[in-house]
Design a protein around this nucleic acid. Structure first.
Lengths: 202, 202
DNA sequence: CTGGCTTGTCAACAAGTGTTGGCCTACACT
DNA sequence: AGTGTAGGCCAACACTTGTTGACAAGCCAG
């Protein structure tokens, strides 16, 4: 498969790198082929030649592997902190930091990217949670975990709310970790139809 | 103050209504003046005449008053659930539902809207939290609360992750309420230098 | 050196954008 | 009725976008 390394591989990589930065900084729609090409110091038409279209370039730019830790072998008591800490690493270290920022920024504006995020959720997050606790509950628990962690990413890396930015990594783990832990452990406080209890909501 | 009601007030309102819907559905950049005008069944130039520019229209469309409950007079034991429930109401009832969706969708793509969200945070959320617990800690606690609640909105109303969408309002309150409660109560579980406790995090 | 293929450049297209000015219509006031 | 003014529509501008095709330069095999 790894055929003769083309002479243009360097250009390809340069384009992809510039694209990741631009997409992360501006989101899908604001980032233009022309601006990406300018950053990479090449002609816009080259982007088209190597990636077919802007969509093709984007797809190549956001191909991500989260490499979540194996929750099955983790200490059940601190798995929430473990996952939170790993999440911070993903968002603060290359190359995933720019990719995730790109996904989040663009997902909120483009339906196609929303689908991509659902795939990441279903294909990488839920399976990780599946290896911990009751499998029947896994999607629900994964959803709750993601609601907290993506909210953290949103306020810390996109909206950059000062108090959230000010938190150190250790503080984030100490504050948010227990929340993730509780969601992962999954008390299922009150299903849809409790047998004999009173439902306070209609 | 309330001068003679212009004949065009109805048109103005129609435009604003269509704009809110379009902005909420498509975000700032995708929503075009032309599409909004088409929805309102009027000419695009009318939008310009009444709102000056697309930015002016947007500013008018996202003017929002959250009307958060007074946490000072609330039951301190269930304030987390109260705030979570109120948050759900905001996101599921007109007219705030479309406005908030618009803000969230657009904030992630436009820096100007990010600033607007910071203003809402600093001007409406933090003051509400300020009326509960230690004032010195308020921004930090408000940030954590918002990280959870905006993450909930993101996964439930924007990304529409199936397990999160499937939750009933009561279930959301039951699951997320305690998290908000814990953040609001603000144990400051473990600053930088814990006195004598064992820290499992490095 | 001479072909053929890759790599790169230039200019242009078609579509869609926000925005503007001119013109027609219809109401309100005298 | 006549007239001034506000409400509304049409066509066009200037600009940016993704995308395409023609054409020059550079490398490699013969």
């Amino acid at each position: 498969m790894s055929e003769s390394p083309r002479r243009s591989d360097a250009t390809r990589a340069t384009i992809l790198d510039a694209a990741r930065r631009r997409f992360a900084a501006d989101g899908f729609r604001r980032a233009t082929i022309r601006s990406i090409a300018a950053d990479a110091d090449i002609d816009p038409s080259m982007v088209m030649r190597y990636y077919g279209s802007k969509d093709g370039l984007f797809a190549a730019a956001v191909d991500v592997e989260l490499d979540l830790p194996d929750l099955a072998t983790a200490d059940p008591g601190t798995v929430g902190e473990l996952l939170t800490r790993q999440f911070l690493v993903l968002w603060e270290q290359p190359p995933t930091d720019e990719i995730l920022l790109t996904l989040l920024r663009s997902a909120v504006a483009d339906d196609a990217v929303v689908e991509k995020m659902r795939q990441v959720f279903a294909g990488q997050v839920t399976p990780a949670v599946l290896r911990f606790g009751d499998p029947a509950d896994a999607p629900r628990r994964a959803g709750l975990v993601v609601s907290q962690l993506l909210g953290l990413a949103l306020t810390r890396y996109v909206l950059r709310l000062p108090p959230v930015v000010a938190l150190t990594s250790a503080e984030v783990v100490a504050e948010v970790g227990p929340t993730v832990q509780r969601y992962l452990a999954g008390g299922t406080p009150m299903p849809s139809e409790p047998p004999g209890r009173v439902t306070s909501a209609g």
